[in-house]
Simulated assay, not measured.
Amino acid sequence: MTLKNRIDSFSELGQVLRDSLDGKNIKYSSDLDALIRNQQFMNPWFTPENVKMAIKAIADELTADNLINWTSRYPALNSEGSKMTVGIVMAGNIPLAGFHDFLSVLISGHNLKAKTSSKDPELIVYISNLLFDINPEFKNRITLTDGLIIDFDMVIATGSNNTSRYFEYYFGKYPHIIRKNRNSIAIIEGRETESELIHLGHDVFSYFGLGCRSVSKIYLPDGYDLSRLITLWAGFNNVINHNKYANNYDFSKAVFLVNRDPFTDAGFLLFKESSGISSPVAVLYYEYYESIQSVYTEIEKIREKIQCIVGRKEVPFGRAQWPQLWDYADGKDTVDFLLKKN
């Protein structure tokens, strides 16, 4: 299968997903709609809104122009190097969290053996079946399992700081990428428009804050009034109607009250001043700064814990959950890693 074949296949996959989401594809729309609606019954965090958003974010990137732009950065993709079997351990914190690894392995011409997440067992299977319909050659290149993956040449595993230790033990002898917990932050300068701040709300609340690209900490200029954010983010207050989110909100609020920790209660989000960056669900950490330079000095100290930075000079407000194909998790170029074994 040539690189052009692979690009054409994924480009068509993007078109099928876009048309299906819009109800324009008679063959797939009803099945996809049912799949989206049913995910919440297996994983309550996977609401139809969040699942649809994840699929749309993927579909919008899978265009011929984007795929050509991305792959053109790697001339070696045009050569028919030796095929490797790449093992992937997929995360399940948000819908289709493992898709970019799935795409990177296959666009590189390798074979894929993936362990699906118990929290997200169906979506990547559905995507694979669409790909089989588009290009049956992929049937011999994709193996999905909910058990152990064996007989692979290299591995990409995504998990928590805790599971990463086990990954290092089991996969350390193979060429590997092992990902740990990361969080995202935002820098507010004080001159942002209402529209920009509302868009920042999407970066905070999408996927209930469970994604590594979800903003869990904001840096504010000295004297910044939190009430402005609370007012502008009122449109996101429906998150409190989600049972699991509300449970987390109630728990953290109770902990703060018992410990007499100061916090600001927006009624649907708890603001807590903290030097940390990994806030619990329903809590947003914030920290005041005197100068932008001091923020970047602090960021450099914790760079390995940060997935992305949102701000006027960084990832645009509202775009944290819409990465481009060349926005690699943890800043590690997955395709470059995969090509080193060719």
Score class of each variant (00 low, 15 high):
L77E: 07
P221R: 04
L148Y: 12
C212Q: 09
Y286F: 15
F171W: 12
P316W: 03
P121S: 10
H110A: 08
W45I: 01
Q15W: 02
H176L: 08
Y286C: 01
S82E: 13
P121H: 09
I178M: 09
T158W: 00
N238C: 08
I142N: 06
K113C: 09
I127W: 05
Q324I: 06
D333Q: 07
E298V: 05
G201D: 08
I177T: 02
E80G: 05
F10I: 08
T47Q: 04
K313T: 10
Y224H: 06
K173M: 13
G331H: 03
Y166V: 05
M84V: 07
S164N: 12
K115F: 09
V239F: 12
K253W: 04
N129I: 02
S118M: 12
V125S: 09
I68T: 13
N129D: 15
L229C: 11
S20T: 04
L197V: 01
L339T: 01
F337Y: 07
Y169A: 06
G201V: 10
P262Y: 14
I306P: 00
V310G: 02
E304Q: 11
Y296P: 03
G159W: 01
I7L: 12
T63H: 08
P323D: 07
L148H: 12
G235Y: 09
F268D: 05
A34V: 09
S72Y: 04
Y74E: 08
A34E: 14
T71I: 02
L269K: 09
S214I: 07
D65G: 00
L3S: 06
D31I: 10
K305T: 10
N238Q: 14
I178L: 15
A64E: 15
Y288D: 03
I198F: 05
F99L: 02
M1W: 02
K113P: 00
I150V: 15
F171T: 10
F138L: 06
N43S: 11
I302C: 03
L106K: 03
A54C: 11
F208W: 04
G147K: 15
F263R: 09
F268G: 12
K253A: 07
E314W: 04
H242E: 13
G92A: 06
L270T: 01
M1Q: 03
F317R: 11
L67H: 04
D19F: 08
F10D: 08
V215A: 00
K83N: 06
F102E: 00
R191P: 00
